[in-house]
């Protein structure tokens, strides 16, 4: 009698365990995540917020290489260039005798007048000679950097701030000149921040 009881208990335990395991096994894949409460539908026709470009300088200024208490002294290009006759051959600031001496220029074999409009230094010059406002640097750069412009237009180049979801908020985008100095567009050397300071990244010492 006693042994029968023991066996019954054992068999029952095994069966219960097996049943439970089976239940979990079959239940596991069917488990669904708690449905999220209804959100405002992301319909394509919902109002889309705008993407604005971060404004750049409206008029071009150049560093004089001197500084006062407020910082480096800059002067608007047109101050001099309304009267000074430009040199269309000029490819380097080092060739100049005055002004622009502090200007670092490393941008292919372009001359100053490839991009600056000789007749109007407050504007820019496209390759076909036409004039565009100084703020439209993107158009100017895109003449040569078409692939980058394509990437930019698809959000794959150039930084941004704001919303990834334009149905919920606006976005601000950098233009070329926010990250690249047009006279020396390669990324400059920068000091990296926040080096890791992990626990025991040096060999641990045992007591």
């Amino acid at each position: 009698m006693r042994s029968l009881l023991a066996w019954l208990t054992a068999v029952l335990t095994v069966l219960l365990a097996a049943g439970w395991i089976g239940l979990r096994l079959t239940a596991a894949p069917a488990r669904v995540d708690v449905p999220s409460p209804v959100q405002p539908a992301r319909a394509t026709e919902s109002p889309r917020f705008s993407t604005t470009l971060r404004p750049g300088p409206a008029t071009p200024r150049v560093r004089t290489g001197t500084a006062d208490a407020q910082g480096p002294i800059t002067v608007a290009c047109s101050t001099c260039h309304q009267t000074t006759k430009p040199n269309p051959e000029l490819r380097s600031a080092a060739e100049l005798k005055q002004f622009h001496r502090g200007l670092e220029y490393r941008h292919g074999s372009l001359t100053c007048l490839s991009c600056h409009q000789a007749s109007n230094y407050d504007a820019l010059r496209l390759a076909d000679g036409s004039t565009i406002p100084f703020a439209e640097t993107m158009t100017l750069c895109s003449q040569c950097h078409g692939q980058k412009r394509r990437d930019y237009d698809h959000g794959a180049h150039g930084g941004m701030q704001g919303f990834w979801d334009l149905s919920r908020g606006p976005r601000t985008r950098n233009t070329c000149v926010h990250c690249h100095d047009p006279h020396a567009p390669a990324q400059p050397f920068v000091q990296p921040v926040l080096p890791p300071r992990d626990r025991l990244s040096v060999p641990a010492k045992s007591p």
């Binding site: 794959a156 930084g159 941004m160 919303f163 990834w164 979801d165």
Partner: peptide
């Protein structure tokens, strides 16, 4: 909330692209 991740906004080179994989128009 629809906003971009902090690491993306901080990136000075624009190396980061974030978005909805289910939206065919997404970046």
């Amino acid at each position: 909330a629809g906003r971009l991740p902090a690491c993306l906004e901080a990136c000075p080179t624009g190396a980061r692209v974030f978005g909805n994989l289910l939206d065919p128009q997404s970046e």
